[in-house]
Each structure stands twice: as C-alpha cells, then as structure tokens.
Write a protein that binds this DNA or RNA. Structure first.
Lengths: 156, 156
DNA sequence: GCATTTGTCGAGTTCTTCAGTTAACTTTTG
DNA sequence: CAAAAGTTAACTGAAGAACTCGACAAATGC
C-alpha cells in the first residue's frame, strides 16, 4: 500500500517550485541537487507535471520550470493521481477509474446486494482523498518554513 | 496505491470462514469455489493466515480450516498487514515498519525540522488505520447478511 | 550562424513484485 | 494402504517501478 517514488519526488520537486513561485525559473539540475533526485528520472516527472498543466517550461540556456498555477490551487491529490493513478485501494471504489470487480461474488447482482469489502474500501478511499484533496502545495510550503504553523485542516 | 489480490482474497476467504465460525471446518476447495479464487493461490494465503495465528487447520480427508479467534477480535488492518505489509503510504510514517527516508533532505537533521510530506502522510496513514483497525470480521459478516445494518463506526 | 546550454521525447534496462503454478511431501481417515 | 486433505518450497510469466540513454529541438550569446 505504498505511493511510488515518482509521487514522492514530484511532491518534493513541487515544494521547491512553490518556494520560487512568481519569481524565477528552476532548472532540473537545481531541483535534482536540492532534493537528491536522479536527474533523468526527475525529468520525466517534470514532463508529466507539465503535460498535466501544472508547470510551464522554457528551453535554452536561461530555461527551467515554473509553477503555472498558484500553489494554493494545487492539491496533493491531483499530483499523486497524475503520477500514481487513482487513490482508491481497490478498483471497484475508484471515483476516477471505476472498474467492476471481475470475480467478486457480490458484484452487481440483480438485487445489488452490497459487497462488504467494497463498503469499507470506499470509506478508506474517501478518508484518503479527504486529506489529499484538501491539502495544497501552499500548506506544504508554510509548514516547511515556519514548522508548526500549519492549520492541519485534514484531521478533525 | 492499491491493495493486492492477496489481501482481497484473504478478506473474502475470511468472510466465508466467519460464517462457519464455531461450527465446521471449511476446505480450500469450498472457499475457492464460493469466492472464485484460484485454489493454489488461495492455499498460500490460508497458510499465511495460519502462520499468523488466525486460522487452525486439520489435514486428512475430513480436514480444512477454521477461525481460531472470534471474528470480532480480528480487524481488517491485521489481515491486510499480514499479506500486504504496513499500511503506511511511505516508509517513514509506518508504525509497524518505520524506515528513515534515505534521500529526503528533511530527514533527521540536527534541529529535526519536520518534513512536510511526512506530516501529511502520517495523517493519511492514521486515517487508513483508524478505519481498518476498527473494522472487524464480524462487522463484515453482519453487513453481508442484513445489508445496511452496519453501524459504520469508521466514519464520522 | 555556430557552439553551448537547456528542455523534449522515445526507447531500453534492470530489478522487484504480483499472481499464479507445479511438484514433492506429510497427515488423517476409511 | 489408498484416497483425500493440508504443507512446503521452488518455480514462472507478466507487469510495474525506478532509473538510464541517446537523439533531437529550441533558446542564448558571442
């Protein structure tokens, strides 16, 4: 039940980019060094984030990447879905990529008796996305600076 | 961010075993047929559950498996950890299998400035285990019978 | 305009895990 | 002792994770 390195690296790279938001461009190499991420691997992560519309880039000697949207509009859920796919722990409870369980004996019978597993897993999915879809990059940056000042609106 | 088939099959097999708790033994084959699980794969799952102390077994012609503990004492969290390992989405927030992030620039510095990622991921981990460690096999069975009667104590 | 520096793109590589299979056991019962 | 069950370990094929490489395209600046 792990997130991939891709997601983790993406979040780390985005914290760097958040700190430079509205100011200057950051180059792959700078990010890679700051965050100890293999540069060629980071490259494809940045590309994915760019294709997803989160980053802008410029080529050439003064090139680099920058956030294209304000940090408080980018949620961790968005980022992780870009790199790892849906958050749901099993496919039959995914909102973004639902798939009927092929072999579950409870799946889609006529009387549509609820699958007990599906029921819990939906709770799990919702708990995860409640946190990750309400936590933005700006929350991130706040915390890494003034450690402790974060409101923690993801847990009651 | 998915649970494995092993975990899913384990939960499905355990619902069968829960229904027979305190009565008779269930054989691999019966479980496999009821739940459409490949029998040889199911076998290693049942073995893992047995080695973890959840099941008893008997060999021979009248053999089979049975729950060794009452269903209300077995949580889904226990089961999933047996087959999939820790629930934590990244290793540095696992209670059962903590590992220091090797490359994270925030990890364990002298002033131990908190890692912002670690902070959110700990919330995620706790949200998941709040659900899975409080949901037992007996909750499961209740729901698959009288669908809808389950108290749902895992979400507020 | 050519060299240098950066990003872009596609493919390849290595390693591990997932999901399932096979085969050689041991134990129990009739 | 044969048949039916569980036990154990090893094996395999496919997929995914985590990088790596090489050729290319655009921007800069002398």
């Amino acid at each position: 039940m792990r997130f991939s390195k891709k997601s983790e690296y993406a979040l780390r790279a985005l914290t760097e980019l958040t700190e430079h938001y509205g100011r200057d461009l950051l180059q792959r190499q700078q990010i890679a060094e700051q965050q100890h991420i293999p540069i060629e691997f980071l490259e494809q992560i940045l590309l994915a984030l760019k294709n997803a519309g989160l980053l802008a880039s410029r080529r050439g000697v003064t090139g680099g990447y920058s956030l294209i949207k304000p940090p408080h509009e980018i949620t961790l859920g968005q980022v992780i879905r870009i790199l790892d796919g849906p958050l749901a722990p099993i496919a039959c409870v995914s909102k973004t990529a639902y798939q009927k369980c092929s072999d579950c004996p409870y799946a889609e019978q006529s009387g549509h008796e609820a699958c007990p597993i599906q029921d819990v897993m939906l709770n799990v999915r919702n708990a995860i996305s409640d946190i990750l879809d309400n936590y933005t990059l700006s929350d991130f940056a706040k915390q890494s600076k003034g450690h402790g000042s974060h409101a923690n609106h993801s847990l009651r």
